[in-house]
Amino acid sequence: MNKTFPKLFALLAGTLMLAGCEESIPADKRYTPISNSKPVRSVLVEEYTGENCINCPNGHVALEAIEELYNTPENLEQGVGVVAVGIHIPNWGRPVDKGGFIAPEAESLTPDEVNPPQAQVNRRSGLLDRNDWAKFIKEAIATPTRVTFVNSVLAEQRGDQMVISGAVHSVENFNDTRLHVWVVEDNIVSRQRQPDGSMVADYVHMNVFRGCVNGVKGSEFTLSRNDDRRFSFTYPIAAEWKPENLRVVVFVESQSFGVMNVTQNNLQINQ
């Protein structure tokens, strides 16, 4: 009798706990990220930078080292990696119409009181100084996600437009998610203020944010359990961009969990 009672009690308590979970936690709140040590996903790093910011080249070097660490062919094949976007922010360079990199959306994407070079990881870390990037990225990249991209996002040039399409799979219901599609350009040779205060003309800028395909707030993008949700966008290629240097960054952001997953793909050029 003494042995039977604890077993019955445990069974009853377990049943009550499970029933309680089913009714009290909304479906879109069930996902609880738990970090482990192995990289398992991709993370978005929004770096706030500027051509005229003397400390920013140090930020670029730090981020490149982190990208090299995680963006190995093996990791990328598994959908794991660091997706870096350098947002050139007002006060630290020239706007696009003066030949600079401050995109029209940059002001809306710039957090208050940002002191470049700073960065946000998955829109959950808050503003981080350069020395803290590696630690937060290591943690974020090892945090499992319930949202994945189905195959690769396709980004194709069609004349002076690009056509972007893809699909997102979720293993939970999420009704507070939004989809963001951004254009980024690499290998732009232009000026950059150096840490010694001098200006060099032939600095190679990577990860330069060029524009939001679907607005700074993205598109509403609710996700259903075990379902694939497709998306498709068309966006103009500006005359000053080099199509061969463009890539498209797509990420799913949840109000509750920040950036749930991110992917990037080079623009496929039509000869």
Partner: peptide, 8 residues
């Protein structure tokens, strides 16, 4: 931009 490595 001095002292902290960040610019403000």
């Amino acid at each position: 931009c001095g002292f902290t490595g960040q610019c403000t």
